[in-house]
Structure formats: structure tokens, C-alpha cells
Simulated assay, not measured.
Amino acid sequence: MNQPKFPSFVVIEGLEGAGKSSAIERVNQWFARHFPDLERVNTREPGGTPLAEEIREIWKRPRQEAMAPLTELLMVYACRAQLVESVIKPAIAAGKVVIGDRHNLSSVAYQGGGRGLEQEVAGLSDITLGQFKPCLTLYLDIEPKLGLERARGRGELDRIELESLDFFERARRCYLDHAATDPDTVTIDASQTIEQVQADIEAALAKALL
């Protein structure tokens, strides 16, 4: 059986409307083609376990009572801690590949950049994750205005998708700053045709894992 170069935790990141769902499908197809005997585990954040999904429902739903930024941050890290300890780490230890729909970089961008909670994000990341991180992150980069137009085309928006354009501009700057300094993060232009985006995804996977 073929094996990737190292235990695999691959994460897809990006703003709303960047095409994460299509990218995740392509990543799954790539692993099925190159490592057909390797079991895959798909996760999403916030969420991914019964407990974390309950928190996610509260976290994402628009409501009359405004959610304080620190409350939002604590809830997402509660979900992440539960998912990492009960699903992701055990799967990797069992030799499976984990394909994640978002991980810690989302909090760096959204709660750190978007909400201005950089220090709080760093502190909670240290507490909940320590040195644990994905072996590869595919960041789908898109102009926030275009991404939000795509998101609106899908239907009703959730609490995060209803944020201002400035919020997403700040989040995007954080994504780009991180990608520029982290060798395990690959930036993919999500405004390209879907065929080119998929080709770039497969090229990044091949370079990192074959």
C-alpha cells in the first residue's frame, strides 16, 4: 500500500465563497486515487463531534442577542479542543488521513484579524493545541466582495456571513500574512476557473505528500 510521506492532516481554509466544499471533494478524490487503501476521516470546524456540533449550532445562528467576540472565540476553541482530542489525534495515530474543513488558521484570521483578538487567539491556541498543526494547509484566496457574492447566491446567510466587508478584509490580510511565512501553507487563487483551482490543489498535494 502506498503511504504519504508522513501522517497526514490536510486542512482547507478560506473566506466565505472561496469554494472550500469543492476543494474538499477534490482532496478526497486525490487521496482515493493515490492512496486507495488509506482510510480518510473528514472533519469540519467548528463542529465535527456530537458535542461540538451542538455548540456550532448556537455559534452560527443569527440571534437578537449579540454574541460578544470573546464568547465567540471561547466557543470555537471549545469545539476545536473536543474535535482534536476525540477525533483528529486518534485518527492520525491509527494511520488514517484527516481532511479538515477549517482549523486553527480560521481563528487566527476571523477572531484574531477580524475581531482584533490576536493575543487571546494565540493564548488559547497554545492551551488547546500546543505544537499540534496540520501537515498541509490549502488556503483558497479570494477577494471578500466576490466571496460574499458567491455566498449570498447559496441562500440564507449565517451569523458570520452577515459580517461587514471590512471584517473579511481584515481576515484575508491575516490569511495572506500567515501563508507568506508558513512553509506548510499553500495559497491557491480561488477566483480562477474551477478546473485551474482543482489542478493547483492536486499539484500542492503531490508536492507535499508524494
Rank of each mutant, 00 (worst) to 15 (best):
L165F: 11
G155R: 13
R80L: 00
G14W: 03
T193D: 14
S86D: 13
K96C: 05
L138Y: 03
Y175G: 01
E16W: 06
Y77D: 01
A91W: 11
G95K: 08
F6L: 13
D182F: 01
I188V: 07
K20C: 08
L129Y: 03
C79E: 02
P144E: 09
M67C: 10
A122Y: 05
S86N: 13
K5N: 12
A151M: 09
P7C: 11
Q198S: 15
T128H: 13
C135Q: 13
A78T: 11
I127M: 14
K20L: 10
R154L: 11
Q3R: 15
M1R: 11
E16G: 09
Q82G: 06
L148F: 05
K207A: 15
W59Y: 14
S107W: 05
L146R: 12
P7I: 09
Q82V: 08
V41M: 03
G17Q: 00
G48K: 04
T185W: 01
K20Q: 12
Y175R: 00
E39A: 15
E169T: 13
G114F: 01
L124M: 12
Y175F: 15
D166V: 06
L209T: 07
I127S: 07
R150A: 01
W30L: 07
R170T: 01
L70F: 07
L83Q: 10
P144M: 09
E163Q: 15
S191Y: 05
L209R: 05
F35H: 10
K89M: 08
F6K: 14
T187H: 00
Q198D: 15
G130V: 03
K133Q: 13
T49I: 06
L157K: 07
R150Q: 04
W30V: 06
R63T: 15
T128Q: 09
T193P: 00
W59S: 05
G100V: 05
V11R: 03
V98Y: 02
A23I: 09
G14V: 06
Q192T: 12
A18P: 02
L15F: 12
G116Q: 09
L105E: 11
P50V: 10
F167I: 05
P90L: 10
K5D: 01
S21N: 13
T193M: 03
D101Y: 03
R159F: 05
H103G: 02
R26C: 09
L140G: 04
S8H: 06
W59D: 04
T43L: 07
L129G: 01
A190K: 00
E16H: 07
P46E: 02
P46F: 02
V186K: 12
L83G: 06
G47A: 06
K145F: 06
N28G: 13
E118Y: 08
S22Y: 03
A18H: 01
V10F: 05
A180K: 10
D101E: 09
T43R: 03
P69I: 08
E25P: 00
S21A: 15
N28Q: 12
R159Q: 10
A81V: 09
L124K: 00
R44N: 03
M1V: 11
R80E: 00
V197T: 14
